[in-house]
Amino acid sequence: MKKVLYYSVILFFIGACQKEINFDLSDHQAKLVVNGHLYNDSLISIDLSISGQITQSVVQPYVNGVVELFDKDTNQLLTLNNDGNGRYFSSIYKTQANTIYFIKIKTNERIYWIREETPDTVFSEIKDSSRFFFQGNEAYFQLKLELNDKSILKNFYEIKVKRFYKEWNGIDSINKQEWVDINTQEFVLTESPTSRYSKKQLLFSDRFFNGQKINLNLGMFGLFNTPQQRTTHLQVYVSSLSLNAFNYYTSINEHLFFQNDPFTQPSQIIGNVPDAYGAITGRYLNVETIVFK
């Protein structure tokens, strides 16, 4: 009987297989791809690359560009350095919160203009944290975060948690880090259908607590339950985002969520670079650290 079952199932799954097929794809016209971040009090970093045909496995960096930064009155502030590998950066100049910037990207073919406004300061504080036991081991961690939305304007936020841990390979310990999944039942964090696209990056707006303080309970599983690992500390990243950043990250998460689902309409990534892909996004970042002894 076991054999019959075994062979029946094997037969079914062998038959239900994947087969490579060729499509006559349209001619590919490469486009510029921009990935840039404007953080508060941080150096600027912008990556330029070129989109490839789907069958290409390597994306080419764009190394011949010129990237310049302008203020809201289009006065040039600086020209970014080119590292020759597609990265354009400032050595000294730092962007500020709540400021409008224009970025000009000049390629061999054309010029692109991007407008981005860095968001206002974020006010957040970790109020409490607790550790729960699971199957005899310490496995669940919960923290209470206070977020103060002082502005009556519409604001967008992002919460991420990075875990730093030591891993033993038998002889040595290696320091590692990873973004962790955040579990929450909080209404403001789960009410939007887009909230399910990523557990590592919680993206939400202030529409249910505009101008008010709110306490958010966040939980994390699996921080402690591997004998070979020991979590040393957590970093809690709370950011206020520009609208462009919020749309960009949300659409990326949505796209990645559905990317391998053949039954959905593909989702579009919402950038802010006209006639090109990608975005330059502004954020105000606040990082707090929880150390485990």
Binding site: L25, S26, H28, K31, V33, N35, H37, D47, S49, I50, S51, G52, Q53, I54, Q56, V59, E158, K160, W179, S198, K200, Q201, Y248, Y249, I252, N253, I269, Y277, G278, R283
Partner: peptide, 10 residues
């Protein structure tokens, strides 16, 4: 038809 790389901060 096309592919490119994005950075979402993660």
């Amino acid at each position: 038809e096309e592919i490119y790389t994005v950075n979402n901060g993660i």
